[in-house]
């Protein structure tokens, strides 16, 4: 984690990207938002990235390589795993199976996509504020 690094949003849905972007814009944080379209694009970005991100927020339902497979690849790669903390799942789907599975691969949080912008702003604000005052491995790279 680098507190001034970008926030990576792994999300293919154009509407959700717009919701997240507009909710985030209202919050006035200085970190850049970087959108990644699918699992393959995301894994290539994470392998090649120079700048350590502040947060990674990933959907599960993404094309080509789904969010679960992406997280599994990150979890198994020791080099990028340490750079990818915190890694947060952001999904419409909330079920015991998905939650247990995601946490078994070392994620730092799991949030349900809300049904309105106010709740979305609330969730983003909570996540960012929490990690702004946290300590995480990438800070010392």
């Amino acid at each position: 984690m680098n507190k001034n690094g970008p926030i990576l949003i792994i999300e293919d849905d154009i509407d959700d990207r717009n919701f997240i972007q507009s909710a985030y814009n209202k919050l006035n944080y200085s970190n850049e938002l970087v959108f990644l379209d699918d699992g393959e694009m995301a894994i290539n970005y994470l392998i090649q990235m120079v700048k350590i991100p502040f947060l990674i927020i990933s959907d599960l339902n993404i094309p080509r390589m789904n969010g679960r497979e992406l997280r599994s690849r990150v979890h198994q790669n020791e080099v990028i795993r340490i750079k990818c903390v915190p890694y947060i799942i952001f999904s419409t789907t909330v079920s015991k199976t998905f939650i247990d599975d995601a946490y078994s691969m070392g994620i730092q949080g799991y949030f349900k996509k809300p049904a309105n912008l106010t709740d979305l702003m609330d969730i983003l604000k909570n996540i960012v504020d929490y990690w702004k005052i946290s300590y995480a491995p990438g800070m010392y790279m």
């Binding site: 509407d15 507009s22 419409t92 996509k113 049904a115 309105n116």
Partner: peptide, 20 residues
């Protein structure tokens, strides 16, 4: 039910955005 949730959530969000 899973798949139904996603478009529904979007409809709800759009409604709140329009009302606001």
């Amino acid at each position: 039910s899973h798949d139904l949730q996603e478009p529904l959530r979007k409809i709800q969000t759009f409604v709140t955005v329009i009302l606001e």
